[in-house]
Structure formats: C-alpha cells, structure tokens
C-alpha cells in the first residue's frame, strides 16, 4: 500500500497516509523535496523528491512528518 515516488533514493513517501502538511519541503535543510502540481483524489499534494544528491539522510523529514508518510532507509 505504500507508494514510493522517488525512483532510487532512500526516502519513501506513502501517498495514502499523506495529509499535506508541507513541513518536508519547508524545513528540509537540503531542499530535497519539492511541491508537486499533482493533487491526489483525497485532495492532498504529497511531496515529490526533487534532488536525491542533496539528501544527507539526516532524517529530519521522518521526524517532522506528522502523517507517518515518510520513512528513510538508513
């Protein structure tokens, strides 16, 4: 049921859990995420991975994710 929007990176996003907090792209210190144009059937805009290379796997996004929608493989 989890759907990974990144193709090869460590960060996993579960679109089913996402409620569009927007915290990832605002507070990610490396700008890994971007706001997608896409709106899901639930009316939310799950984060899209912008730039893998910038990710240092600090895992701040997994702590700041209120919807338990992002996990990171360390």
């Amino acid at each position: 049921m989890g759907q990974n929007l990144g193709l090869a990176g460590p960060v996993q996003v579960n679109r089913d859990f996402c409620k569009r907090c927007g915290y990832y792209f605002e507070f990610c210190p490396r700008g890994v995420f971007e706001r997608p144009d896409e709106i899901t059937l639930k009316g939310v805009t799950p984060p899209r991975i912008n730039e893998w290379a910038e990710c240092t796997m600090c895992s701040l996004c997994t702590l700041l994710r209120p919807d338990i929608a992002v996990s990171i493989e360390v």
């Binding site: 089913d16 859990f17 409620k19 569009r20 907090c21 927007g22 915290y23 939310v44 997994t62 702590l63 700041l64 994710r65 209120p66 919807d67 338990i68």
Partner: peptide
C-alpha cells in the same frame, strides 16, 4: 507503531503526529 491504524485521525498539519514520531524515535 500500530501501522494497521494509520492514517491516524489527526488533521493536516497537526503537531500531534510529530509528537508521536518523536516519542517512537
């Protein structure tokens, strides 16, 4: 976590999910 109960009931942007993450971490 009881993943079978997620998504949780809290609203979008609610701070309680963050508190839960932090506790579980």
């Amino acid at each position: 976590l009881r993943i079978d109960r997620v998504p949780h009931i809290w609203c979008e942007g609610c701070g309680l999910g963050i508190l839960l993450n932090s506790f579980v971490q």
